[in-house]
Design a protein around this nucleic acid. Structure first.
Lengths: 243, 243
DNA sequence: ACAAAAGTGTTGGTGTTACACCCATGG
DNA sequence: CCATGGGTGTAACACCAACACTTTTGT
């Protein structure tokens, strides 16, 4: 084999196992809290320590498939947004066993997800060792995963400001107040005036009045809107701010 | 070994070689052209076809170190900006020999670089098979690398609009016209009026007049400015537009 | 003096902010 | 009829695009 120098037995070229780590966010509109999904490690190293849901990539499986698999192992959810975050080479810390003792390095490709909270059902398997944590109250994570989490949090806030990922996890119809709550929960309470938020969003033209109303006790019932992806399409890639 | 199931001989876990591919941009202020660095492949597959400068990651070497190594193999440059772009899992195409025949997958982590054109000196090694190409006139690249290049080009334009990477590759002192040319070359000629560009940049307050002047033949000599990173620091992370 | 290049000013329009106000409903 | 939440309007201000204009140099 002419190219053996590039193959496994070449001492110069590193061999890797590639892991996927998910930073999964969710917004609870009811309590107006932002959560991130953590799971407790079942094996050494860092057994019993909270960490990001992750896995090693299997044969025949793409990175995104691996991210999706680990997500579906932890929660049952249909509405979600998923994108790649960053790749970290982890010299110090391979969370998946003894491979490093065999000279195999570990690379963590992180993914960022946003899921619908009301619909997300935690899967109880593995002794319920998966739970939502308030983003403001994260414990110290195994294997320096805090760094990845913060990177994901920053991405979430940025994404929210210039792309329509909120509509991937909001219900099909929603009130402008719910949308406002959503943004406020992620970006902080004083990110914008409600009235200005309304006019800006409506002027963009991709929120359609469904004619339906939603009443919650006293007060004037709110119009229900839906996200019109066709009306949004031409705005794609355009710089746009929802702030 | 208790964790053998996670080790190399586990049939379920994929083994990878990780490659780094660089999208290296440079702006020639003189000709007002945007270039990208390509190198001709010296080995099979795709021998003789233009591609992005890349390498396999070696043992003991971080991803960024690998990106930096391959960059320094091709050009000699001091002033540059480098950041990770994206990770692509390449099922179909491993450009580094026969590893895939051994069941080893290939993952490409791409990096994005911007270098100072005037200073960048192509290294003639390997029969001069490295050259600057006009971004507008890219040949078809080996192994679907065009996708990576376009992704990098998009990133370049975005970065330029909201972060000060231009100052990493401009000379220490420069005229506002040179800065304007730089932006115009990357973003397209009609990205903004010169006069408005001036006032916006100067109002931001991180360009300091050095008191020096630069004259190029006829015409009023231009003030030379420098980028004041201390004055910029408080603006970091703040949304900011240079457009 | 004139052309060339740098730098300044003006003006109309648009977007943003911080409010005050009006509308629809339940109790 | 009033408390509650939804929805609209507006005055002050900041910002921006487009363009005309002035200043400083070389020849």
């Amino acid at each position: 084999m002419a190219n053996d120098r590039h193959a496994l037995n070449n001492p110069a070229i590193a061999n890797f196992q590639v892991g996927v780590d998910n930073v999964i966010f969710s917004v609870d509109l009811h309590s107006q809290k932002l959560f991130v999904l953590l799971s407790k490690r079942l094996q050494q190293p860092f057994q019993g320590v909270w960490s990001l849901p992750g896995t090693l990539v299997r044969k025949g499986e793409s990175l995104e498939q691996a991210a999706d698999r680990i997500l579906k192992e932890k929660i049952k959810v249909n509405s979600l947004y998923l994108e790649q975050l960053y790749s970290f080479d982890e010299f110090a810390c391979n969370p998946w066993g003894s491979a490093s003792q065999l000279g195999i390095r570990y690379l963590s490709v992180s993914y960022f997800a946003l899921v619908r909270f009301e619909e997300a059902e935690l899967i109880a398997r593995e002794g319920g060792m998966t739970a939502w944590f308030l983003v403001k109250e994260i414990p110290t994570l195994a294997c320096d995963r805090d760094r990845i989490l913060h990177y994901g949090y920053r991405r979430l806030r940025n994404k929210l400001e210039y792309s329509p990922i909120a509509f991937d996890v909001l219900p099909a119809v929603f009130t402008l107040n719910e949308l406002y709550q959503f943004y406020g929960t992620v970006l902080g309470e004083n990110f914008a005036d409600y009235s200005n938020f309304r006019s800006r969003l409506l002027k963009l033209g991709f929120l359609k009045d469904t004619g339906l109303k939603s009443s919650r006790g006293a007060g004037r019932p709110a119009k229900l809107y839906r996200f019109d992806s066709e009306a949004f399409a031409p705005l794609k890639d355009k710089p746009m701010v929802f702030i």
